[in-house]
């Protein structure tokens, strides 16, 4: 059970926070706002799953926010043009996959450092989108919000689909040879090559998958409001990477699980409402997020250090 230690600690921390909230601010647990809170995080969860795969292979992608924005606007425009959501979804996902594949080709094909590549694509995509749209909102036709269902039903659909993605990927990571290859490449790319795995192909695949998930998440996002915000994805990369790192996925690759990512994301998502309920100003959110990333990184570093001795 040693390998699950991090997830347990995390779950305990989350449990403690929830307990504290139950004691100090029971209003936090009212169903409607809680459901809204979780639904707002559903797209982030989908992206975080993809990010976890990328980090498991010892890479990183900080352009997810821009990919998400581009896909959101694209999906919004299609929906506004009267396309049914059933068609918008695959097109948005395909658009995301293309953007992800671009990162993947630059990283896996040319052997460039993923941090700089995705820094470049992050800005190029964001500014490209701004250039094309001039910050304009996309107004969505009726019947797009909440898939044309009631709000609570729409929220349920989103939550269930986000969890489906999570469970599906978690099972694939565990039970598909491809999933084990992700771990193998992140654990030791050279040994993976010797075992007949092609690390470059795996890397390209996880970047593409992350892009695809960004596209899906974008659709999950636009159905939550009557308008599409062109900057919907700004800051998403930070939240998602924080969730993954806090969730116990080692930044050095090869270690971690999607269950930890789920816990990490919920933990981070609880911060702003917790701050409000505990009468701490919400402006502290980003600082606390940063501090949590640093704590998680330090914890991993200290653990690695101990292991070496």
């Amino acid at each position: 059970m040693k390998r699950r230690g991090r997830e347990f600690v995390l779950a305990a921390v989350l449990g403690a926070i929830l307990l504290a909230m139950a004691g100090w601010a029971p209003a936090f647990f009212e169903p409607a706002p809680l459901r809204s809170l979780l639904t707002r995080e559903a797209p982030a969860l989908v992206v975080a799953c993809g990010m976890a795969l990328v980090i498991l292979t010892r890479q990183i992608d900080i352009s997810v926010g821009s990919q998400f924005s581009v896909c959101s606007v694209a999906a919004g425009l299609l929906a506004a043009a009267g396309w049914p959501l059933g068609l918008v979804l695959p097109v948005a996902a395909g658009c995301g996959a293309l953007l992800g594949a671009l990162n993947g080709i630059l990283v896996a094909g040319l052997g460039l450092p993923s941090i700089v590549v995705t820094l470049g694509t992050m800005v190029a995509l964001r500014q490209g989108l701004n250039l094309a749209r001039q910050g304009e909102f996309v107004n969505l036709p009726d019947g797009v919000q909440w898939f044309g269902l009631s709000q609570s039903a729409g929220q349920a659909v989103l939550l269930v689909s986000a969890l489906l993605v999570l469970v599906g990927l978690a099972l694939a990571l565990r039970y598909l040879a491809a999933g084990r290859q992700v771990y193998a490449v992140g654990s030791d790319a050279e040994a993976a090559r010797l075992a007949g795995i092609r690390p470059r192909v795996v890397t390209l695949a996880v970047f593409t998958l992350l892009g695809l998930l960004c596209g899906i998440a974008a659709v999950m996002n636009i159905v939550q409001s009557p308008q599409v915000q062109p900057l919907a994805g700004s800051g998403l990369e930070l939240k998602v990477i924080a969730a993954v790192v806090v969730g116990g996925v080692a930044i050095s690759g090869g270690r971690g699980s999607l269950w930890g990512v789920l816990t990490g994301l919920v933990l981070l998502a609880c911060i702003p409402p917790a701050l409000t309920h505990l009468h701490i100003e919400a402006y502290w959110e980003k600082a606390i997020q940063g501090a949590i990333i640093l704590l998680a990184a330090t914890a991993e570093g200290v653990r690695r250090r101990k292991e070496r001795h």
Partner: peptide, 18 residues
């Protein structure tokens, strides 16, 4: 502590702005 510069400065990126 020999932590990776990328993740450390990503954390402080958020911390300082926050």
């Amino acid at each position: 502590l020999q932590l990776p510069p990328l993740i450390v400065t990503l954390g402080t990126y958020s911390l300082f702005r926050g």
